[in-house]
Amino acid sequence: MLARPGLPEFEYIRAGSSQDVFDLLKEKGADLKLMLGGTDLFVQMRDRAQGPGILLDVKGLPGMQEIDYRQRSGLTIGAAVTLNQLSTDLDLKEKYPVLCQAADTVGNYQLRNRATLGGNICNASPSADMAPAALVYEGEAVLESPRGERSLALEQFWLGPGSTALEGDEYLKAIHFPPPPPGARGSYLKLGRSRMGDLAIVGVAVLGYPDKSVPAGLRFRIGLNSTAPTPYRIPAVEEFLTREPLTEDLISLAGEMAMEISSPIEDVRATELYQKKMVRNLTVKVLKETWESLR
Protein backbone atom coordinates (compact mmCIF):
# COMPACT_ATOMS: atom_id res chain seq x y z
CA MET A 1 0.00 0.00 0.00
CA LEU A 2 1.25 3.47 -0.83
CA ALA A 3 1.73 5.95 1.99
CA ARG A 4 -1.14 8.27 2.80
CA PRO A 5 -0.83 12.07 2.69
CA GLY A 6 -0.40 13.83 6.04
CA LEU A 7 -0.59 12.18 9.41
CA PRO A 8 -3.56 10.19 10.67
CA GLU A 9 -5.52 11.57 13.59
CA PHE A 10 -4.06 11.15 17.05
CA GLU A 11 -3.94 12.91 20.36
CA TYR A 12 -0.74 14.81 21.09
CA ILE A 13 0.17 14.93 24.77
CA ARG A 14 3.30 16.46 26.18
CA ALA A 15 4.56 14.64 29.24
CA GLY A 16 5.73 16.96 32.00
CA SER A 17 7.02 14.31 34.39
CA SER A 18 7.89 10.66 34.40
CA GLN A 19 4.76 10.11 36.46
CA ASP A 20 2.71 11.41 33.49
CA VAL A 21 4.39 8.81 31.35
CA PHE A 22 3.78 5.97 33.80
CA ASP A 23 0.13 6.93 34.24
CA LEU A 24 -0.58 7.15 30.55
CA LEU A 25 1.34 3.99 29.73
CA LYS A 26 -0.74 2.18 32.30
CA GLU A 27 -4.01 3.65 31.17
CA LYS A 28 -3.57 3.70 27.38
CA GLY A 29 -0.78 1.21 26.86
CA ALA A 30 -1.37 -0.36 23.47
CA ASP A 31 -2.90 2.76 21.93
CA LEU A 32 0.01 4.99 22.85
CA LYS A 33 3.35 5.65 21.28
CA LEU A 34 6.17 7.56 22.86
CA MET A 35 7.55 10.30 20.69
CA LEU A 36 10.97 11.88 20.56
CA GLY A 37 12.03 13.59 17.30
CA GLY A 38 9.34 11.77 15.36
CA THR A 39 11.42 11.60 12.20
CA ASP A 40 10.97 7.85 11.76
CA LEU A 41 7.68 7.64 13.59
CA PHE A 42 5.83 10.07 11.30
CA VAL A 43 7.00 8.22 8.21
CA GLN A 44 5.84 4.92 9.70
CA MET A 45 2.48 6.49 10.58
CA ARG A 46 1.96 7.58 6.97
CA ASP A 47 2.83 4.07 5.79
CA ARG A 48 0.44 2.20 8.03
CA ALA A 49 -3.32 2.01 7.91
CA GLN A 50 -3.71 2.20 11.67
CA GLY A 51 -1.67 4.50 13.86
CA PRO A 52 -1.45 5.01 17.59
CA GLY A 53 -4.29 6.99 19.17
CA ILE A 54 -1.92 8.99 21.32
CA LEU A 55 1.55 10.38 20.76
CA LEU A 56 3.16 11.08 24.07
CA ASP A 57 5.95 13.58 23.59
CA VAL A 58 8.63 12.83 26.17
CA LYS A 59 11.22 15.31 24.92
CA GLY A 60 10.43 17.74 27.71
CA LEU A 61 10.98 15.37 30.62
CA PRO A 62 13.71 16.50 33.02
CA GLY A 63 17.16 15.55 31.78
CA MET A 64 16.01 14.21 28.46
CA GLN A 65 17.83 16.88 26.47
CA GLU A 66 21.00 16.91 28.54
CA ILE A 67 24.47 15.63 27.89
CA ASP A 68 26.31 14.83 31.09
CA TYR A 69 29.96 13.86 31.01
CA ARG A 70 31.95 12.87 34.06
CA GLN A 71 35.49 11.65 33.93
CA ARG A 72 34.86 8.76 36.31
CA SER A 73 31.42 7.55 35.43
CA GLY A 74 31.38 8.43 31.77
CA LEU A 75 28.78 9.91 29.51
CA THR A 76 25.03 10.05 29.80
CA ILE A 77 23.10 11.34 26.82
CA GLY A 78 19.43 12.11 27.35
CA ALA A 79 17.20 10.21 24.98
CA ALA A 80 15.89 13.45 23.43
CA VAL A 81 19.30 14.90 22.64
CA THR A 82 19.27 15.65 18.92
CA LEU A 83 21.94 14.29 16.68
CA ASN A 84 23.17 17.79 15.84
CA GLN A 85 23.36 18.67 19.51
CA LEU A 86 25.35 15.51 20.07
CA SER A 87 27.74 15.94 17.17
CA THR A 88 28.70 19.48 18.15
CA ASP A 89 29.23 18.76 21.85
CA LEU A 90 32.82 19.46 22.76
CA ASP A 91 33.14 16.70 25.39
CA LEU A 92 31.80 14.18 22.92
CA LYS A 93 34.07 15.34 20.15
CA GLU A 94 37.03 14.79 22.39
CA LYS A 95 36.08 11.64 24.27
CA TYR A 96 33.60 9.85 22.02
CA PRO A 97 34.40 11.09 18.53
CA VAL A 98 32.98 8.03 16.79
CA LEU A 99 29.51 8.92 18.11
CA CYS A 100 29.82 12.40 16.61
CA GLN A 101 31.07 11.00 13.36
CA ALA A 102 28.18 8.55 13.19
CA ALA A 103 25.65 11.25 14.04
CA ASP A 104 26.83 13.32 11.08
CA THR A 105 26.00 10.47 8.70
CA VAL A 106 22.33 10.25 9.64
CA GLY A 107 19.91 11.59 7.01
CA ASN A 108 20.52 15.27 6.49
CA TYR A 109 21.20 18.36 8.57
CA GLN A 110 17.56 19.41 8.93
CA LEU A 111 16.56 15.94 9.98
CA ARG A 112 19.35 15.78 12.55
CA ASN A 113 17.92 18.88 14.20
CA ARG A 114 14.89 16.73 15.04
CA ALA A 115 16.20 13.18 15.13
CA THR A 116 17.37 12.05 18.55
CA LEU A 117 19.82 9.50 19.84
CA GLY A 118 17.04 7.87 21.81
CA GLY A 119 14.85 7.60 18.74
CA ASN A 120 17.64 6.06 16.70
CA ILE A 121 18.21 3.48 19.43
CA CYS A 122 14.52 2.79 20.21
CA ASN A 123 13.57 2.27 16.59
CA ALA A 124 15.75 -0.82 16.66
CA SER A 125 16.38 -0.55 12.96
CA PRO A 126 19.06 -2.99 11.83
CA SER A 127 20.62 -0.11 9.91
CA ALA A 128 20.62 2.44 12.76
CA ASP A 129 23.65 4.61 12.17
CA MET A 130 24.24 5.38 15.83
CA ALA A 131 24.26 1.71 16.74
CA PRO A 132 27.76 0.56 15.72
CA ALA A 133 29.33 3.55 17.46
CA ALA A 134 27.14 3.07 20.52
CA LEU A 135 28.15 -0.58 20.60
CA VAL A 136 31.88 0.03 20.50
CA TYR A 137 31.56 2.51 23.36
CA GLU A 138 29.61 -0.22 25.18
CA GLY A 139 26.49 1.86 25.56
CA GLU A 140 23.69 0.93 27.91
CA ALA A 141 20.05 1.85 27.63
CA VAL A 142 18.85 3.53 30.80
CA LEU A 143 15.23 2.56 31.25
CA GLU A 144 12.78 4.10 33.65
CA SER A 145 9.60 2.57 35.02
CA PRO A 146 7.51 2.77 38.18
CA ARG A 147 9.63 -0.15 39.33
CA GLY A 148 12.69 2.06 39.17
CA GLU A 149 15.60 2.53 36.83
CA ARG A 150 17.52 -0.24 35.15
CA SER A 151 20.30 -0.38 32.61
CA LEU A 152 20.57 -2.80 29.79
CA ALA A 153 23.52 -3.29 27.45
CA LEU A 154 22.44 -2.34 23.95
CA GLU A 155 23.13 -5.88 22.71
CA GLN A 156 20.41 -7.00 25.08
CA PHE A 157 18.17 -4.05 24.33
CA TRP A 158 17.72 -4.84 20.65
CA LEU A 159 15.78 -8.02 20.07
CA GLY A 160 15.13 -7.86 16.35
CA PRO A 161 14.07 -5.43 13.62
CA GLY A 162 11.83 -2.87 15.32
CA SER A 163 11.78 -4.86 18.53
CA THR A 164 13.33 -3.92 21.88
CA ALA A 165 13.41 -5.18 25.46
CA LEU A 166 11.39 -2.18 26.64
CA GLU A 167 8.64 -3.38 28.97
CA GLY A 168 5.14 -2.00 28.63
CA ASP A 169 5.57 0.35 31.57
CA GLU A 170 9.03 1.57 30.64
CA TYR A 171 10.61 4.31 28.62
CA LEU A 172 14.13 5.03 27.46
CA LYS A 173 15.52 7.85 29.52
CA ALA A 174 19.12 8.01 28.38
CA ILE A 175 22.03 6.14 26.92
CA HIS A 176 24.98 5.72 29.20
CA PHE A 177 28.54 5.13 28.05
CA PRO A 178 31.37 4.19 30.38
CA PRO A 179 34.60 6.16 30.01
CA PRO A 180 36.37 4.99 26.86
CA PRO A 181 39.59 3.01 27.38
CA PRO A 182 42.65 5.25 27.61
CA GLY A 183 44.26 5.96 24.27
CA ALA A 184 41.23 4.80 22.29
CA ARG A 185 40.93 5.73 18.61
CA GLY A 186 38.35 4.75 16.12
CA SER A 187 35.93 5.66 13.42
CA TYR A 188 32.65 4.82 11.74
CA LEU A 189 32.59 4.03 8.05
CA LYS A 190 29.30 3.89 6.24
CA LEU A 191 28.48 2.78 2.76
CA GLY A 192 25.31 4.09 1.17
CA ARG A 193 24.07 4.41 -2.38
CA SER A 194 24.72 8.15 -2.32
CA ARG A 195 27.80 9.86 -1.00
CA MET A 196 25.79 11.28 1.90
CA GLY A 197 22.34 11.07 3.33
CA ASP A 198 21.46 7.47 2.54
CA LEU A 199 20.68 4.63 4.87
CA ALA A 200 23.60 2.31 5.50
CA ILE A 201 24.05 -0.66 3.19
CA VAL A 202 26.79 -1.53 5.65
CA GLY A 203 28.21 0.51 8.52
CA VAL A 204 31.21 -0.45 10.58
CA ALA A 205 32.53 1.23 13.72
CA VAL A 206 35.85 0.29 15.21
CA LEU A 207 37.36 1.41 18.49
CA GLY A 208 40.94 0.35 19.16
CA TYR A 209 43.04 0.91 22.25
CA PRO A 210 46.33 -0.22 23.75
CA ASP A 211 46.16 -3.25 26.03
CA LYS A 212 49.46 -4.67 27.26
CA SER A 213 47.76 -7.76 28.67
CA VAL A 214 47.23 -9.33 25.27
CA PRO A 215 49.88 -10.50 22.80
CA ALA A 216 48.69 -8.04 20.17
CA GLY A 217 49.21 -5.17 22.60
CA LEU A 218 45.95 -3.77 21.28
CA ARG A 219 42.30 -4.46 21.47
CA PHE A 220 39.59 -3.65 19.00
CA ARG A 221 35.87 -3.40 19.40
CA ILE A 222 33.94 -3.77 16.17
CA GLY A 223 30.29 -2.84 15.74
CA LEU A 224 28.25 -3.33 12.60
CA ASN A 225 24.79 -2.53 11.30
CA SER A 226 22.50 -3.42 8.40
CA THR A 227 23.81 -6.94 8.00
CA ALA A 228 21.93 -8.87 10.68
CA PRO A 229 18.51 -8.59 12.36
CA THR A 230 20.02 -6.17 14.88
CA PRO A 231 23.21 -4.12 15.05
CA TYR A 232 25.92 -6.34 16.49
CA ARG A 233 29.46 -6.72 17.67
CA ILE A 234 31.73 -9.53 16.52
CA PRO A 235 33.49 -10.81 19.66
CA ALA A 236 35.09 -13.73 17.85
CA VAL A 237 36.91 -11.38 15.53
CA GLU A 238 37.75 -8.98 18.34
CA GLU A 239 39.27 -11.88 20.29
CA PHE A 240 41.12 -13.18 17.22
CA LEU A 241 42.83 -9.82 16.83
CA THR A 242 44.28 -9.96 20.34
CA ARG A 243 46.14 -13.23 19.83
CA GLU A 244 49.32 -12.07 18.14
CA PRO A 245 50.96 -8.86 16.98
CA LEU A 246 48.86 -7.27 14.32
CA THR A 247 49.72 -7.54 10.63
CA GLU A 248 47.91 -6.56 7.47
CA ASP A 249 47.30 -10.25 6.81
CA LEU A 250 45.64 -10.66 10.18
CA ILE A 251 43.39 -7.70 9.45
CA SER A 252 42.45 -9.29 6.12
CA LEU A 253 41.62 -12.50 7.94
CA ALA A 254 39.52 -10.54 10.42
CA GLY A 255 37.64 -9.09 7.48
CA GLU A 256 36.96 -12.56 6.13
CA MET A 257 35.74 -13.66 9.54
CA ALA A 258 33.43 -10.66 9.82
CA MET A 259 32.02 -11.48 6.41
CA GLU A 260 31.32 -15.05 7.49
CA ILE A 261 29.59 -13.95 10.67
CA SER A 262 27.39 -11.35 8.99
CA SER A 263 23.94 -12.47 7.94
CA PRO A 264 22.51 -9.86 5.60
CA ILE A 265 19.43 -10.46 3.49
CA GLU A 266 18.86 -9.08 0.00
CA ASP A 267 16.70 -5.99 0.03
CA VAL A 268 15.87 -3.06 -2.22
CA ARG A 269 19.22 -1.50 -1.38
CA ALA A 270 21.69 -4.31 -2.05
CA THR A 271 22.19 -7.99 -2.74
CA GLU A 272 23.19 -10.34 0.03
CA LEU A 273 26.54 -11.08 -1.58
CA TYR A 274 27.46 -7.42 -1.98
CA GLN A 275 26.57 -6.70 1.62
CA LYS A 276 28.75 -9.56 2.80
CA LYS A 277 31.71 -8.43 0.70
CA MET A 278 31.24 -4.90 1.96
CA VAL A 279 31.29 -6.11 5.55
CA ARG A 280 34.69 -7.57 4.77
CA ASN A 281 36.05 -4.57 2.89
CA LEU A 282 34.77 -1.93 5.27
CA THR A 283 35.89 -3.86 8.34
CA VAL A 284 39.37 -4.19 6.89
CA LYS A 285 39.45 -0.53 5.94
CA VAL A 286 38.37 0.81 9.33
CA LEU A 287 40.61 -1.61 11.19
CA LYS A 288 43.59 -0.48 9.15
CA GLU A 289 42.77 3.18 9.67
CA THR A 290 42.35 2.67 13.39
CA TRP A 291 45.53 0.65 13.65
CA GLU A 292 47.36 3.45 11.79
CA SER A 293 46.02 6.06 14.17
CA LEU A 294 47.12 4.01 17.17
CA ARG A 295 50.71 3.68 16.00
Binding site: A3, R195, M196, G197, V268, R269
Partner: peptide
Protein backbone atom coordinates in the same frame (compact mmCIF):
# COMPACT_ATOMS: atom_id res chain seq x y z
CA UNK B 1 6.81 -0.86 -6.71
CA UNK B 2 9.20 -1.47 -3.82
CA UNK B 3 11.10 1.81 -3.90
CA UNK B 4 8.50 4.58 -4.34
CA UNK B 5 10.17 7.09 -2.01
CA UNK B 6 13.21 9.32 -1.82
CA UNK B 7 14.70 6.89 0.70
CA UNK B 8 14.94 4.07 -1.80
CA UNK B 9 14.68 5.80 -5.14
CA UNK B 10 17.85 7.83 -4.90
CA UNK B 11 18.27 10.86 -7.12
CA UNK B 12 21.56 12.74 -7.23
CA UNK B 13 22.04 14.99 -4.23
CA UNK B 14 24.27 18.02 -3.96
CA UNK B 15 26.98 15.70 -2.64
CA UNK B 16 26.85 13.42 -5.68
Amino acid sequence: PINPSFVDYRIATIAD
